[in-house]
Amino acid sequence: KSQEFLPPDEALEDPAQIAPGDWTLEQRRPWTGYAPPYAPDLNALETQVARFRRGDSLLVVGAFEPQEEEQPETDTRRQSMNPRIVDVRSRRNESRGERQARSNPFGRIQEEPVPFLPEEPEKTAPVQSGLFLIDTETGTHHEVLGEGPRGAFQLLVPNGRYIIGVEAFSPDDKRAWRDRHGLWQDPLVLGLAAVSDLLILKGGGNLPESLDEALPTAMPVTRIRTGESFKAAWELYGLRIGESASVRIGVDRGGEGFIRRLGQFLRVLEPDAPVVMTYEDTGPDVLGTVFRAVELNLPDLEPGEYTLTVEIELSGREPMVIARPIVIVP
């Protein structure tokens, strides 16, 4: 099927600013659509991507799962008559295998992957998966490859501005799934505090005490059933020994578009937004990374799109705010 593969226009100015959900596979401009020969059936991959700090480096975590395919309405007459559509299969100077090797991001020799969501073997066609990062300034390419249609990856890279792709590919079924957007992380200024992205985890069991414990339960899709418990986790950096924090967790109506309009890292909870939890967080005993996790339940929320927001206020410092869109389903 022929689809829109190009990123939004904003990518020309700063690719790292492409927000999650902006680089879609919709058929909005059929004259730029094409079907890659190695996977004519390309679909969206649902992901939850989060950034963490490791010294002067960026640790990217990506949990993923294929999205259920929706059959879009197509205008076959327009597609067949439009002379600007390029049929990549018409290139006769390459064999089929050469074309696939050239265009398939999974065609390279696999390195040892770092997936950390073990799955029971499934009786389905084998699926290759990977997390890819491309530095928007130098073009440097980073990747980690693995097996399976769902799971999670982690990849450590220098701080900077990147295009991220979380992708899966079934050679036998000639199907593929992907999610692409931009992300960045600046170095932490000496003497300042910082917070990681918010990571949503499955409910149940004990609270994790570290990111390594939390990752196997990261939700690739932040859809939560009414009355179902879940966990939220984050890391803090640059706290002083014994420095306590006031934490407020709340929800606002609206999803990613709501975050984008108000500025994800600059906004605070609206005055009338429901507050889920408030507490005083005791300071660390030693200098270093501080991991935090809480279990939540939102039984009174109607189904719909929301933004879960965590505000962290340190005495004498600027408050820190992180957010993650969630969807409540019946």
Rank of each mutant, 00 (worst) to 15 (best):
F265H: 01
G257F: 02
V268R: 10
E209Q: 14
A273P: 09
E280K: 02
Q264H: 02
L262P: 00
S315L: 13
M219L: 13
S315H: 12
T307L: 15
I259N: 10
T289W: 02
P284T: 04
L192S: 15
P208R: 04
K202P: 07
S244Y: 06
L198G: 14
E302L: 15
D300F: 14
F291H: 07
S246F: 14
L308G: 05
L199E: 08
G203F: 07
S244K: 11
G316H: 08
I249S: 12
A218S: 10
I224S: 01
L198Q: 12
D212C: 02
R267L: 02
G254W: 09
G227L: 02
L301C: 07
E209G: 14
I312E: 01
V290Q: 08
F291C: 07
L201Q: 09
V294L: 02
A233F: 10
V195A: 04
L314I: 00
L236W: 07
L298A: 08
K202V: 03
S210P: 01
P220V: 15
P303L: 07
P220F: 15
T309Y: 09
R253W: 09
G250K: 11
D197T: 13
G288N: 06
S244I: 13
R261E: 15
I241S: 10
D197P: 14
L201F: 11
N206Q: 06
T217R: 11
R292D: 05
D285H: 11
L198V: 14
E256T: 10
W234P: 13
E295C: 00
T282F: 05
A193S: 15
L215H: 01
D252Y: 00
L239G: 14
I224H: 00
F258M: 12
L192V: 14
G242H: 02
I200A: 06
D281E: 14
N206S: 11
I241C: 08
Y279K: 05
A193R: 14
G205L: 03
R317I: 00
E311H: 01
A273I: 08
A293H: 04
L262D: 00
S315I: 15
L211F: 14
I312L: 05
R248Q: 15
T222A: 08
V195N: 01
V290T: 12
E235D: 06
A233E: 07
L269R: 04
V294D: 03
E311R: 01
G263W: 01
L262G: 02
L301G: 04
G238W: 01
L266R: 00
E311F: 01
